[in-house]
Every structure is written in structure tokens, then in C-alpha cells.
């Protein structure tokens, strides 16, 4: 699965690596329509699911209808908007579902049972379990029993696939989480590898993928 980030000038839920990546992307002219063109290009060549990840403002500013239409046309599958809790999601979720796009809700370690139900009710495709109380790229203990227990609770509350992310960096982390979720998200570590070049990026992806296989 590809999580394609659409940069925003003020990414308050992201740590330094993704912040800097977004700043660089904007400085070199990245736009939402550019990201959609990239999604379409990937879709032409690969089968993998594509999730558009961003913040509310650039997406809403584009126009919810237009965004949903063009995202669907590009062949992407779902939207993940970190600063649109379920209470406010309808502005994008409505038009997106009308076009058959999924809506990825987030559940955090701080989420209460009442909120979890609300997030799950709004989610489709899969649910994103935030692994830690912090921003992306923060240090994670992937073997933390509390994390595993939380994932188990979430599993009990929902039939949606669970994808866990924030702070996952290496194959070992993936292995530690493999039995507790249906997928992992790796962001900051891949951005850092990408800066070292396509070879380093490819290598990390291969190694991470190794972590998903049973030994």
C-alpha cells in the first residue's frame, strides 16, 4: 500500500522529518494536482492500494467535490486526513464516499471508548492505530504490552483491518507488531532513506517487507 502525502505548510501532527519533507516539497512546487497525477502514474504501473494523506486545509481548499472526483479518477482508494476528527469529517468524507473512496479514521492511545466508537463508525477501508502519544517519527517501543493490548481492544471493537503507524522504522519493529495488526505504516524512516537515494529506499522497503513474513 502506498500512503501518498500531500504537503501542508503547517503539519502539526508531524515530527521533524515529515515537516522538513513537506517544506522541501512545497518549496520545489509540489501541489495537490501534482500528487494526484503521481497517484495516477503509480496506478497505471502498479496494483497496490493508494491512500492520499494530508491535512484538512489543502484538501478542502481544492473543493471537496473536485478532490473526490479527481482522486477517484486517479485510481487512489482512500483519504487519510489527520486533523479531521469524525465530528468534522463529513465535509470530505461525504463526497469521498459518494465516489467510492474509503475514509481512514485514526485511533490514538488517548482515544476513549466513546470516541473510538465514533471513529470506527466513520471509517471504511481500514482503521489507523496511532502507536504512540506523540508526532510521527517519535521513538516507539514496538513490544510495549500496553500497545499490544490496545491493538487487541481495537480488534475486538471493529471488523476493519487495523494498520498501525508512528515511529515504525525497521524490520524488527514490523516483526514485533506483525501479530497484532494487519499492516504497518512507515513514514519518517522511508523519507530519511529516500533522501539517501532510490537504492537505500528500495533496500529499506525490502527489509521492512521481510519483517511481515513468518520466520
Amino acid at each position: 500500500m502506498l500512503e501518498l502525502g500531500v504537503p501542508f505548510s503547517d503539519p502539526t501532527a508531524d515530527g521533524p522529518t515529515i515537516q522538513a519533507a513537506m517544506t522541501r516539497a512545497l518549496a520545489s512546487g509540489a501541489t495537490l494536482s501534482g500528487a494526484l497525477a503521481l497517484a495516477a502514474e503509480v496506478r497505471r504501473r502498479f496494483e497496490l492500494p493508494i491512500v492520499l494523506f494530508s491535512y484538512a486545509n489543502p484538501l478542502i481548499s481544492y473543493g471537496p467535490e473536485r478532490l473526490s472526483r479527481e482522486t477517484a479518477e486517479a485510481g487512489a482508494d482512500a483519504l487519510l486526513v489527520v486533523d479531521l476528527p469524525p465530528e468534522h469529517a463529513e465535509v470530505l468524507r461525504g463526497p469521498a464516499s459518494a465516489r467510492g473512496l474509503g475514509w481512514v479514521g485514526l485511533v490514538a492511545p488517548t482515544t476513549t471508548p466513546a470516541r473510538r466508537a465514533r471513529v470506527l463508525a466513520a471509517s471504511s477501508g481500514f482503521v489507523y492505530a496511532v502507536s504512540l502519544t506523540g508526532v510521527t517519527g517519535a521513538p516507539l517501543d514496538p513490544s510495549d504490552p500496553a500497545l499490544h493490548a490496545g491493538l487487541a481492544t481495537l480488534r475486538g471493537a471493529s471488523s476493519l483491518p487495523i494498520v498501525v503507524g508512528f515511529g515504525v522504522r525497521k524490520a524488527e519493529d514490523v516483526r514485533a507488531l506483525a501479530g497484532h495488526a494487519d499492516g504497518v505504516v512507515v513514514g519518517s524512516a522511508l523519507v530519511e532513506a529516500g533522501q539517501r537515494g532510490p537504492a537505500a529506499l528500495g533496500e529499506l522497503v525490502k527489509s521492512l517487507r521481510g519483517g511481515t513474513l513468518r520466520a
Binding site: 502539526t12 501532527a13 484538512a56 489527520v82 486533523d83 479531521l84 476528527p85 465530528e87 468534522h88 479514521g105 485514526l106 485511533v107 490514538a108 492511545p109 488517548t110 482515544t111 476513549t112 470516541r115 471513529v119 496511532v130 502519544t133 506523540g134
Partner: peptide, 14 residues
């Protein structure tokens, strides 16, 4: 107005 924050903060804001 509203509460447009990451889920992690929503419980604190509530």
C-alpha cells in the same frame, strides 16, 4: 470555530 485537531488531542480538548 470547531475542533480540528489530531485524534491524540481530541480527548484533552473534550
Amino acid at each position: 470555530g470547531g475542533r480540528y485537531v489530531a485524534e491524540t488531542l481530541m480527548p484533552a480538548v473534550e
